[in-house]
Nucleic acid binder design. Sequence first.
DNA 1: TAGACACTTCGTTTATCATCGAACTATGCA
DNA 2: TGCATAGTTCGATGATAAACGAAGTGTCTA
Lengths: 226, 226
Amino acid sequence: MQECPDIAYVAALIGDPARANMLTALMSGKALTASELAGEAGVTPQTASAHLSKLNESGMLRVRKQGRHKYFSLANDDVAHVLEGLMGLAVGSGHLRKRPGPKDTKLRKARACYSHLAGDLGTRMFDSLRARGFLTLQGDALTLAPSGETFAISFGIDIASLRSKKPLLCRECLDWSERRSHLAGSLGRGFLSQFENLSWAKRDRKTRIVTFSQYGEQHFAELFPA
Amino acid sequence: MQECPDIAYVAALIGDPARANMLTALMSGKALTASELAGEAGVTPQTASAHLSKLNESGMLRVRKQGRHKYFSLANDDVAHVLEGLMGLAVGSGHLRKRPGPKDTKLRKARACYSHLAGDLGTRMFDSLRARGFLTLQGDALTLAPSGETFAISFGIDIASLRSKKPLLCRECLDWSERRSHLAGSLGRGFLSQFENLSWAKRDRKTRIVTFSQYGEQHFAELFPA
DNA sequence: TAGACACTTCGTTTATCATCGAACTATGCA
DNA sequence: TGCATAGTTCGATGATAAACGAAGTGTCTA
């Protein structure tokens, strides 16, 4: 008997609206409890419980028990990456789900994509880094140039420790709102968390919106000129 | 109203077993007719027709009409990339679909992943290229070194025209059978087609198996030493 | 110890959608 | 012109699984 990865199994798992909502919510990078996810998905706790155990069985989630709470997050970057890819295809197909709220423009301006910065500001950062030769893009391959490394270090990002943890450093990620690339990978994560550390920006965990203060946006524009 | 890419729609589309079989078959990179795809999926032509029109509507397929035949292929590399990602998740979840046939070992040895070489030989090629410094992997970023460029050109690959067509040149692709990387992107495609041109290998379009002749495998081993 | 809360399990209902038979259109071939 | 083949549309059938109400277990707090 020939073995072959069962795409359908995983895709069907993601293909249910309730589960897709949960996974989308987890793209914020934050761990959420079962009932929070039930709220996100718009289903009762029982239903959410069933969904979450299925997702967990498939290895797409990471679970941590804390008292009477159960915190779920995406298992790893690969899962997030596949989800972003699916978002790209969904946009390409013209299928957009409607959700209440006037947050659209904010979300398009700056949002957390799993754990890095996406949206208009995300692509602007990416372009600026490339324009100055800090990031070099050859084909699909993204490299942090030595000049970019000193730039990142001077901004307070601990490149050495990032590099030591995992082999992935910078990765290109296609933006569904801008349809252009932004910076993902551990380097992208480093930048976003540094924006938070410096109080340039605040992440709303529920909506994935990243709000820059006036002060922060000004410094951001100086750091990443067009 | 806030817009948000509808992951569930696309994923549910891929999530049906019949459609997933069709898409997997199209990963060979070859365009297939509706009835061929019906056979791949194990459904009647009527059912296949319904599936294919849905997939086409979503923009995942490219259709060309030729006489009374309709040729379907994947719309672009992004679709293939998402499918490979899903395969990776499926393997991670331990969900392998069983299929009849003793082709498993052959498929694991060498197969076409969309349009480049995957499997044992694919990862061996990738490792060899890296070991000699032709490909440099920094984090997730894959670059073709100048020495690698001359190597590829001397092997008969027209790097200049590859580069001129699209911005993607080399890309890393996680192998579901080896759980290691192999070379994708237009460069990977170039290598596989050159193997075919030189009659080192033959692709079976139906099974995605790439069969090397004894002659071809010998030369392959010389060109890509461990 | 009580009671509130987080999450789970069970059984039933309900709706969605894949599937196929039958009948249709369109293309190619002789 | 006729017949085979490729693909489609339609309607009926059936199976799968999502959803929730009700009733459980476990955990924290007063």
